[in-house]
Amino acid sequence: MPSEKQQEYRDHPMNENEEIQTNPEHDDSVDELTDDLETLLDEIDEILEEDSEEFVENFIQRGGQ
């Protein structure tokens, strides 16, 4: 069973001539932004990986480019 998200992407119609209108001016909707961090802060301890100490200690990557 694909997840809901996979389904969403798979169902997206393919139309090669479809072009999205670009209007760089239209996105300046600063009013729609919120600077309220409280919502995330209320949830953050549940979102953060458990046992942060061990998690960040064990996060080791090989160097790349």
Partner: peptide
């Protein structure tokens, strides 16, 4: 340090940037 790393987590539910974006917090 966990918060720093998890800002970059690409999972929509766990990534802190993703959560900020979902909350309408980022441009």
């Amino acid at each position: 340090r966990m918060l720093d790393l998890q800002y970059h987590d690409t999972r929509p539910e766990k990534g802190l940037y993703a959560r900020l974006q979902k909350n309408g917090h980022v441009k």
